[in-house]
Amino acid sequence: MAKAMARHILVRTEAEAAQLKQRLAKGEDFASLARKHSICPSAKRGGDLGEVRPGQMVRAIDQVIFRKPLRDIHGPVKTQFGYHLVQTFYRD
């Protein structure tokens, strides 16, 4: 069965997600920004979602993790929880 390793930052607004994405593009540390800004419990782990399998996440996030290029930061992706920035760094 397919699996991946991913991390994300979850915020309340699209504007906040876009601002964080710009900061990441300038080289700021993903884990540090996740710890400081993410409203998800994964913030304590720098946004690390651990090993993920298809169907474990909401559909929009699942599609990013299993279909988008590795290592790129994708988003903002809107879900019922807020806006996500998602990075997948391993997939098989």
Rank of each mutant, 00 (worst) to 15 (best):
P76R: 03
K44M: 13
V52E: 09
G27Q: 06
Y83T: 02
F30Y: 06
F30D: 03
R67V: 14
F81P: 07
G27D: 02
Q22D: 05
L49M: 11
G27F: 01
F30G: 02
I61D: 11
R45G: 03
F66I: 12
Q19I: 06
K78T: 13
L49N: 06
R53N: 07
F66P: 15
R45D: 09
P54R: 12
A31H: 13
S32K: 00
E16S: 15
K36E: 12
G55D: 13
D72M: 08
L33W: 01
E28K: 04
P41W: 00
K26E: 10
A31V: 14
D62R: 08
G82A: 10
V58Q: 11
H84N: 07
E51P: 14
V64I: 12
P69W: 00
G82P: 14
V77R: 11
Q22M: 02
G27R: 06
R23P: 04
I73T: 10
L49S: 09
L49C: 13
T79K: 15
K26D: 07
G47D: 07
R71P: 02
G46S: 04
P54H: 11
S42A: 05
T79E: 15
R23E: 06
Q22K: 04
E51L: 14
I61C: 12
L33E: 00
Q80A: 11
H84M: 06
G47F: 06
V77P: 13
A15F: 09
Q80V: 08
E14M: 04
S42L: 00
E14S: 09
R53M: 03
A25I: 04
R23I: 02
P54F: 10
K36Q: 09
A43N: 08
Q22S: 05
P76F: 06
G82T: 08
K26Y: 03
I61R: 11
I65Q: 13
H74Y: 02
F66V: 12
Q63F: 04
V77L: 08
L49A: 12
E14G: 08
F30E: 05
A15H: 12
C40L: 05
S42F: 00
S32Y: 00
I65P: 14
A60P: 12
F81A: 12
D48K: 09
G75D: 09
L20V: 01
V64H: 02
S32G: 06
H37I: 07
G55E: 10
K68S: 15
E28I: 03
G75V: 08
R23K: 08
G75K: 05
A31E: 14
K36C: 02
S38D: 03
L20H: 00
Q56V: 03
H84C: 09
M57F: 07
P41H: 00
L70K: 08
A34H: 01
H37R: 05
F30K: 01
V58G: 14
R67G: 15
L24G: 03
G47K: 04
L33Q: 01
R71F: 04
G47C: 09
G50I: 01
A15K: 13
K36P: 04
A15V: 12
S38V: 01
R67D: 15
